[in-house]
C-alpha cells in the first residue's frame, strides 16, 4: 500500500537527486569547456573516490571517530596492492570479500 504522502516523498527525493545528475550533463556537453575547467574535472574522479574511501576506512561511529586498527583498513592494504597489480575489478571485489570474510573469522 502506497500512500500519497509516500509517493510525494519519493518523487521529491527523486527530483532533488536527478537534477544534480542531469544539469551539468545537459549544460556542459553541448559546449567546449575552458582548459582549466577540463583539467579541474579531470581531477574529480581521483578526488571523489579518495574522499569516499578514506573516511570509510579510518573512521567509525556517529559522530565519527578516528580508528587506525580495524578489519576494513587491514584488508584494504592487500586489496589495493592487488588492484594496482592486476587492474581487475572483478578480481579485486572477490579478493576483498574473501579477505574480509577471513579477517572477520580469525581476527574477530
Amino acid at each position: 500500500m502506497i500512500t500519497v504522502d509516500y509517493l510525494i516523498l519519493c518523487l521529491g527525493m527523486g527530483l532533488v537527486t536527478y537534477v544534480p545528475r542531469w544539469a551539468p550533463l545537459f549544460a556542459l556537453s553541448q559546449r567546449t569547456l575552458p582548459r582549466w575547467l577540463e583539467e579541474w574535472l579531470d581531477m574529480i574522479p581521483a578526488a571523489i573516490l579518495s574522499a569516499l574511501i578514506l573516511p570509510a576506512l579510518v573512521t567509525v561511529g556517529e559522530p565519527r571517530q578516528l580508528t587506525l586498527w580495524n578489519n576494513d583498513l587491514l584488508v584494504a592494504v592487500p586489496v589495493f596492492l592487488f588492484a594496482l597489480r592486476t587492474r581487475s575489478l572483478g578480481g579485486t571485489v572477490v579478493l576483498g570479500m574473501a579477505l574480509y570474510w577471513l579477517a572477520g573469522k580469525f581476527l574477530g
Binding site: 581521483a46 573516490l49 579518495s50 569516499l52 574511501i53 570509510a56 576506512l57 576494513d72 584494504a76 586489496v79 589495493f80 588492484a83 594496482l84 587492474r87 581487475s88 575489478l89 579485486t92 571485489v93 572477490v94 579478493l95 576483498g96 570479500m97 574480509y100
Partner: peptide, 9 residues
C-alpha cells in the same frame, strides 16, 4: 569497498 579501491587505482 573492493570496487571503490580498484576504481581508485
Amino acid at each position: 569497498m573492493g570496487m571503490f579501491l580498484c576504481l581508485l587505482v
